[in-house]
Simulated assay, not measured.
Amino acid sequence: MQLANLDLNLLVPLDALLRERSVTRAAAALGLSQPALSASLARLRRHFGDELLTRVGNTYELTPLAVALRRRVGVALTGAERVFASEPGFDPTTSTRDFILLGSDYPMVVLGSSVARIMGERAPGVRLRFQHQMPSIIETAGEALREVDGLVFPHGFLSDMPHLDLYRDTWVCLVATDNPRVGDSLTMDDLATLPWVLTYNSSTAFTPADRQLQILGVQPKVQVVVESFVALPYFIAGTDRIGLVQGHLAGHLTRNGDVRALPCPYDVVPLVEALWWHPMHERDPEHVWMRSVMAEAGARVGAGSAETGPVGR
């Protein structure tokens, strides 16, 4: 298929139609008339030989081909935007580039504020979008990283992708300050008998410290599962539950005094937080600069941990 023979202007209406699943809503989102977008849909249907949108009752549903096209269209549009936003030389002081990073709420709290501060000081026109990633992204990380600038995630889940180690961390146990079943320290028996709040709990989404605990023969008695580290204190405070949280984040979560952090009673495997990106960004000057900002922010996190010292008993 010759690229010159394609009408690339159809990518924008195709993206809107797949997102909105409605000609009316897609036309409104693009600021077009409904007849104009209907004409674009007719051309798209002829090109693909597929209905793309099919009516089911009072709504429209995507055909299997349309579902497959959704991510591909996003990648194509992102690539086109990056091409036409390229500059002959990258000057962070005048750039208006958007950087999109995916991560859990853990690096958002620990790392995100430093990254935003550095960018604000040196690149006031640059915008950082720190988006919360779903656990399923690990299964399609290679494809997902084509659409964003990076994924902030620890080692142990991704491989064969360029990465930059940002800082090291450890895992600690979080318990209620007034938990009558826990004293100044925890034992392995405590971990086996206390009820748990787990962050993520599936074959592809889990904390390495939790998986290590199971390898040691302790099967946590799970009462609650949350897909957020920041939410942990709300499910632990005032109860006898226990949870695992990263050491750098623990200081933020224990500030109001409702929960406290204790060292794990086993030799927990260290956590190495890293920035991962697609190889296509490797030599991009803008991306290289962004990685330098992330490295500096990570170094600040590491320096901060050296000042605060280990978690107390």
Rank of each mutant, 00 (worst) to 15 (best):
179 N>C: 11
205 A>D: 05
40 S>G: 04
93 T>C: 10
97 R>G: 11
27 A>L: 04
92 P>C: 10
16 A>W: 00
44 L>C: 02
130 F>T: 01
124 P>T: 11
122 R>T: 06
139 E>I: 10
249 L>S: 08
153 F>M: 12
250 A>S: 13
278 H>E: 06
22 S>K: 00
104 S>D: 09
239 T>C: 02
145 L>Y: 09
275 L>I: 08
137 I>D: 14
245 V>N: 04
212 Q>L: 03
77 L>Q: 15
131 Q>K: 14
137 I>N: 11
130 F>V: 08
310 P>Y: 01
270 P>E: 03
193 T>D: 11
207 T>K: 13
184 D>H: 12
16 A>V: 02
139 E>Q: 14
288 V>A: 06
293 V>P: 07
40 S>T: 06
279 P>L: 04
161 M>A: 09
222 V>S: 01
1 M>F: 02
160 D>T: 05
132 H>D: 12
282 E>A: 10
280 M>N: 14
91 D>H: 00
20 E>N: 13
41 L>S: 09
113 S>M: 13
183 G>C: 10
136 S>H: 15
193 T>F: 14
181 R>T: 15
176 A>H: 01
9 N>H: 09
42 A>T: 13
13 P>R: 07
170 T>K: 05
82 R>N: 09
8 L>M: 08
201 N>F: 08
193 T>Y: 11
45 R>L: 01
56 V>I: 12
114 S>R: 15
186 L>R: 03
90 F>R: 04
32 L>F: 12
